[in-house]
Design a protein around this nucleic acid. Structure first.
Lengths: 340, 340
DNA sequence: CGACGTTCGTGAAACGTTATATGAGCTTAC
DNA sequence: GTAAGCTCATATAACGTTTCACGAACGTCG
């Protein structure tokens, strides 16, 4: 008697909570397993299938992913980690990853880490607890610890052979920038990098640039601001090398488009013409600035490809040995700050 | 005998899978419930606690959120839905929501819906299956269906009294823009809106603008492009009203900063001076363009406040009746395209 | 010194699924 | 006409937690 009462009470309290497979089974007058089969598309007698489907419809039943995930050990969720959602590059990366995951019916758990290694580590632990099927990260923590249980793909940072890294061909992009400036008639070049954080792969832009200059026997100057140095330092630099008709260089490779834009502004204020006097090439090619009518000649990163590659790798069979570094081809897009 | 073998086999196959609470309990020589208590900070005898903590450390145990979520019916996850992660406004909203959620140790499941009502609906269903603790959405689907089980907070779109909506004070912002132009000496105004999608709340910017003009007895013109009409239509409009010394208006309120920027460019190409000849006020104030040195006088949306309010509401006790529309105060920020 | 409280760890049940073994209801073959 | 073979729904045991009733161990009081 007591037992009956308890069960009734449970039943009552359940009424305003979400229906479960058990409710569907009762409604349809079939067993639990049958409902499961219908839901998972496993063949079942016609009359059974119809009854179950009707019951699902009637009760507005929604499967509980948590129960499913617990049982099957598959969550169809990928954790994605970027420093923030303010920089256009990170936003576009996340946007593209989201699209690729959605195509495959995967969910995206997102975290912005604000460049903080501790937050990055905490987020990896959280993702692992969350039993995600994989992690895609754009991390600034070179010492990131990951459990070997969870596949991890890195963007723009090479950790070592055990973690696949996907990036643009930064080295090739740096070369290409120098080559294009030289093709366009530049005789002396400059490489500018603002003091913002960069992961290790994008640093290769400089190396490619240097190699192309040396191969072509073209002299170059580098100006790399330390972290935190304000932009104004570049104005002094430009004054020093270009004021009063001086021309220590006539072509500039800026490490990002945003920097290229500001440099262009500074040069124009100094009375120099772009591209007639000085030519400029940036890096990124996001066209996030399309709304602002701002375009510059640039090395375009294949962000869609990067996203697709990451998603493919992270979902791939773990036994298939993935390459440890994948560099995807960039291309040159003229945009008015070079002669061509 | 057979049973023993099977159990052994299971044990073996488990060795390279993640440790569970049961493993911790065995390692520490305590019961399952004790481990649970330690993990959840429920007081337990000193010696027990130490042993359990040591075992957790030794096995590198991580709690399984799926089992936890299934049992406790709380997932500490909020679904967030925006059209994309390309528009600076959406990015900033997501960025701020992410920060607020992280502060409270909540996870964010993110989806970009590409303005597609079907995807939006599908995502809500997915979120409900996922048993999230709530949904925050910036939706373009006026007919969105949600199960009453899951708390939903809307940004920028008012659905009705049953769904709390958080937005900037768009009406007040529109008024403020007109008032500031008038204070700065404008005698005739124009309201420009590009043919991009807007939810219903931001449309009130126009209503506020109109009311302020009428209150001050200042004439105004409105130019609202249909969805898909290219920007160039505005250039014709500007020619028609401002070419050859004509001055049908001397102050413009643009519905977004991005539009204000383009209009400023067009005016300058027409030989008009901003703000001397024409003054312009935009809307958003994201400063996402900081890198691009672009600033305009604008009505600043309190994005951090919006995000915080949404998070507070979505996590709030559901019995506490929330207001159905919350408009957060905007403010005016001069930025060089008005006299002051 | 025995009975009663209190404290606190234990073990089992439950959460909503999936997967596997079981057995009911047929058909087919001898 | 019965035994064997098949199909297919059913029932049950997990998955890794939390929670709660239970009971062992101890201290206290009369």
């Amino acid at each position: 008697m007591v037992t009956t009462l308890t069960k009734e009470a449970i039943q009552l309290s359940k009424q305003n909570s979400a229906p479960t497979m058990k409710d569907v089974a009762r409604e349809a007058g079939v067993a639990l397993g049958t409902v499961s089969k219908v839901i998972n598309g496993i063949p079942v007698g016609e009359s059974y299938r119809v009854r179950v489907e009707a019951a699902i419809e009637k009760l507005n039943y929604r499967i509980n992913s948590y129960a499913q995930g617990l049982k099957s050990n598959k969550t169809y969720t990928i954790a994605v980690m970027v420093p923030n959602l303010v920089s256009p590059y990170f936003c576009k990366v996340v946007n593209c990853i989201n699209r690729e995951l959605a195509k495959r019916s995967y969910r995206m758990l997102l975290c912005a880490t604000d460049y903080d290694p501790e937050q990055e580590q905490a987020y990896v632990i959280m993702a692992e607890q969350q039993k995600v099927d994989g992690i895609i990260c754009l991390s600034y923590n070179p010492k990131l610890q990951v459990s070997p249980q969870t596949p991890l793909i890195s963007i723009d940072r090479y950790f070592g052979a055990h973690i696949p890294c996907v990036a643009s061909d930064n080295f090739g992009g740096g070369m290409l920038a120098a080559q294009k400036l030289i093709e366009n008639g530049c005789k002396r070049l400059a490489f500018l990098r603002i003091g913002s954080r960069l992961t290790n792969e994008p640093n290769k832009r400089r190396d490619g640039f240097v190699q192309a200059c040396e191969a072509a026997e073209i002299p170059y100057i580098m100006k790399i601001l330390d972290d935190g140095t304000p932009y104004e330092a570049f104005e002094d630099f430009l004054q020093e090398h270009l004021a009063d008709g001086k021309r220590d260089f006539d072509g500039i490779f800026c490490v990002t488009d945003a920097l290229a834009h500001r440099i262009t502004g500074s040069l124009k204020r100094m009375g120099l013409r772009v591209p007639e006097d000085i030519q400029i090439i940036g890096f990124d090619g996001l066209q996030a600035f399309g709304d602002l009518e701002y375009v510059c000649s640039t090395i375009v990163q294949p962000v869609e490809e990067i996203a697709r590659t990451c998603v493919e790798l992270v979902l791939e069979d773990r036994d298939a040995k993935a390459p440890s570094l994948i560099c995807l081809p960039v291309h040159y897009a003229p945009g008015g700050t070079t002669r061509e």
